[in-house]
Design a binder for these strands. Sequence first.
DNA 1: TATTGTTATACTCTATAACTATA
DNA 2: TATAGTTATAGAGTATAACAATA
Lengths: 154, 154
Amino acid sequence: MTAGHEDCAKDVLDVAMLVMQVFRTEMRSHRTPDLSIPQFRALAFLNRQPGATLSEAAEHIGLTPPSMSKMVDGLVARELVAREVSANDRRRLILTLTDAGRSLLNGARAGTLTALAKRLEALSEDDLRAVDRAMDILHPVFTPENQAGVNVHE
Amino acid sequence: MTAGHEDCAKDVLDVAMLVMQVFRTEMRSHRTPDLSIPQFRALAFLNRQPGATLSEAAEHIGLTPPSMSKMVDGLVARELVAREVSANDRRRLILTLTDAGRSLLNGARAGTLTALAKRLEALSEDDLRAVDRAMDILHPVFTPENQAGVNVHE
DNA sequence: TATTGTTATACTCTATAACTATA
DNA sequence: TATAGTTATAGAGTATAACAATA
């Protein structure tokens, strides 16, 4: 008998928290450009979805619109994000990464991935393949689009 | 040519961020007791290492001592953590969970695990086993060094 | 003198409520 | 009236620097 879903969930959460700790440490180490984790996530989202509106960004990242607005203020001030008013609907914003934003994102990502990859070097080829496979399995399970079915109404 | 360590690191980071998003959402949902993620981590640490000092907690959680001190202020005020001065070395604190703290931790943990487990129900037995195995592989890889030496100053 | 923790200060991050501009 | 975003306000979370107490 294998462990149940709850036991597996516990292991997944434990590992996710450990990974995020490595991430946090790296982001604060100043070996990497100075980005908070939420800012990193915002830049990553805009890299994936250029031209997204503020509301779209807020929803994907899990922030309220005011919080997102304030974060964008900071990113625009640092010239990492461009904020334009949509011509079609002047209430909407069009958010895109600047070249500086894209390059900062890539630098931060590279730093973190190097830190994580260094840990993974301890693994055998077999274990690495097993981890790859598990990540492929888990990715869709925890992807937001998959949250459909949760309270769409009310 | 199989995926390298960097590619695997990218997948691991992506999944960890997705899992943490589910965690954040759950912690803010008020289906679960009101704890921030850092507070959750602090309570979890003290549950694992009762009697830890403030510096030990700060180091494990990845905060500076002043930040940890302030967080502990809040947890003590909410009577989730007991803060005593060590008799042996009056500079040191001895931090422990109160019963309320332990029970809040368990409640928060249960809520989050339920949310994660619900997602995992989509997986086949085979996939679940693969994930379990991968988590067993990854756990030690990302565990901070000094897990073992639990010093009892008292 | 070195170590442990706190206080002072100043950001960022985040929320809710009230607002402006546009549709 | 409804929607997109901002401003106002408040509180938590975090850092660095300076401090007090203890060893």
